[in-house]
């Protein structure tokens, strides 16, 4: 565990990173998602090359494809090294993001709902997100890319914990 912390670039914040990494298949999920996004960019550019065929369209295609490929190859593993989560009996704590890092902490006592989500790609890979909503419009904490079983179990435990906590969570 400690080795993980050292291996990851230490964030410039006097908070230790959350304890758990997301599921390794999340890298594949983020890659596929990025590749789909890349396709959306490349296909019209390719069409432009075929229709217009001037030098600058070819250059545009080359640059788009190169940048996109670099993103698909480089960013998901980077994100995987950063993204972490932790749930204690008092709080939910996550760290996510590569260009803009985001630490989120929500106390269990203020949690109102716990949901799991699975997009089509996630279903393919057996992954799921867990979203913990508080009374605030801006306070939702999302744990992305857990194994589906773990996500369901986490949601169950969280729901039980929140039901055990009194108050109306505002």
């Amino acid at each position: 565990m400690h080795a993980d912390v050292v291996a990851a670039p230490l964030p410039e914040l006097p908070l230790r990173p959350p304890a758990h990494r997301v599921h390794p298949r999340a890298v594949t999920w983020w890659r596929l998602r990025a590749a789909a996004g890349l396709l959306v960019l490349v296909v019209p550019t390719l069409a432009l090359v075929i229709l217009v065929g001037t030098a600058w369209t070819v250059a545009l295609l080359a640059v788009t494809a190169a940048a996109g490929a670099a993103y698909v190859v480089g960013v998901p593993p980077w994100l995987y090294r950063i993204a972490r989560w932790e749930v204690t009996d008092r709080a939910v704590y996550t760290l996510h993001g590569w260009l803009v890092r985001e630490w989120r902490i929500a106390p269990i006592s203020r949690v109102q709902t716990v949901d799991t989500q699975r997009g089509p790609l996630q279903q393919l890979l057996g992954l799921a997100d867990v979203t913990v909503t508080t009374a605030s419009a801006r306070g939702a904490v999302r744990i992305r890319g857990l194994a589906a079983d773990d996500a369901a179990e986490l949601a169950r435990v969280l729901t039980e914990t929140t039901h055990a906590t009194p108050g109306d969570a505002t």
Binding site: L15, G97, R101, E102, R110, T134, G139, T170
Partner: peptide
């Protein structure tokens, strides 16, 4: 205050600052 969000962009990281958001209902 019912939670915190702390954000740090690449530029903020170089400047050693962060943006903290106090979450409330």
């Amino acid at each position: 205050v019912i939670g915190w969000t702390v954000r740090q962009s690449v530029f903020q990281r170089r400047a050693g600052v962060v943006t903290a958001e106090a979450v409330t209902a």
